[in-house]
Design a protein around this nucleic acid. Structure first.
Lengths: 192, 192
DNA sequence: AATTAAACCGACTAATCAGTCGGTTTTGTG
DNA sequence: CACAAAACCGACTGATTAGTCGGTTTAATT
């Protein structure tokens, strides 16, 4: 079956949002790029805000599916594997990754939703952090602060790689992981 | 002398931009909040984009002035002092700090300008990073990557403190500094 | 006091916006 | 095939937008 018009609208919206910004993209231009009538957009989505939210949910779904997460993270080695996976995904799907960035810092998300975002996408990450904290491997910073820190480092790294035309094999990938992880482990070093 | 209308426009724009977003704030509402006619805005600023840029430059100036930077950073101790200073400034000027955040990830900045931003505001930081790298104290990541990492950590920390009603005396301030710094120093630990 | 320039005003405009609606086509079902 | 429901269409609307412009006030200079 061909791509549904609803999907075409989401695809067009993603490209245009990343290119020009969410507020700067008119619903008319989305329908035009999707090859669809304006009425069709509002048939599938009650208003522009719901389109934006639907796009976010669709991309979150895509991320989780593509990462094919199998169970919890138990060790730093597994965390590194995941780090590489996310970065590879980001380089393969630059628009999708970029959307997460602009969406989080846009007036299209209400703040209450913002805080729940991390827990949803990276729930396995939360578990890992708390386990590390429990055994004293991680510094005693709030879990949500650490989660934010890790997520931001991932976004930064992907953005940097894209901006400098680097690929997932760049040594920067593992170095950035170490910078992130060792920083969180520094209590161990301090004890020595 | 009373506050000039130009300044009133900048002040009103800052509050509204942070509250609702830049694109979501109309020039009409800015003039209304500033208690000024619409024509006055376009007398002082050729268009909305120039107002946004002028606001950014004004805030950058305010930050540099308020921090009262005296010479280069030579040691980690001095870096910590600066870290605390910036966070205190961010908590004292939450709108100004928030504006930097939304401005960087908005379609109102052209990408070329984006990369030059760091070098302008935190030029002293660049010098510090390169000195640390030169003596082997910092991991061999690109200087601009490290600068981005530090700046983002600062923004994250201030945002977190504001969101959780914490002040500049929170232990989180120094812990976040350590997380940032020790992560960048981890090569030393690896050699051991 | 006379002159000039800059600051300021606000009604106005052309363009653009999100969203509507009455009608048409497509699709699924008995 | 008959029928209904859902998908789809695009001209249209009322609201809002950035920016204009001709005229007025204010400030500085001589």
């Amino acid at each position: 079956m061909a791509i549904s018009k609803k999907q075409k609208l989401l695809d067009a919206a993603l490209v245009l949002f990343v290119e020009q910004g969410i507020s700067e993209t008119s619903t008319a231009s989305i329908t035009k790029h999707a090859g669809v009538a304006t009425g069709t957009l509002f048939h599938h989505f009650a208003n522009k805000k719901e389109l934006v939210e639907a796009l976010y949910l669709y991309l979150k779904e895509a991320l989780v599916t593509d990462l094919a997460l199998s169970g919890a993270i138990e060790s730093s080695e597994q965390a590194l594997v995941l780090w590489r996976k996310v970065i590879t995904w980001g380089l393969t799907n630059p628009e999708k990754m970029a959307f997460f960035g602009i969406y989080y810092s846009s007036p299209w998300v209400d703040p209450s939703f913002k805080s729940s975002v991390l827990n949803n996408v990276f729930s396995f990450l939360i578990v890992f952090i708390e386990k590390q904290k429990a055994v004293g491997a991680f510094i005693n910073l709030p879990t949500d602060y650490i989660a934010m820190h890790i997520q931001q480092s991932l976004l930064n790294t992907v953005n940097y790689l894209i901006e400098h035309n680097l690929n997932a094999n760049s040594e920067l990938v593992d170095l950035s992981f170490n910078t992130c992880l060792f920083g969180l482990q520094h209590q161990i070093n301090k004890k020595a």
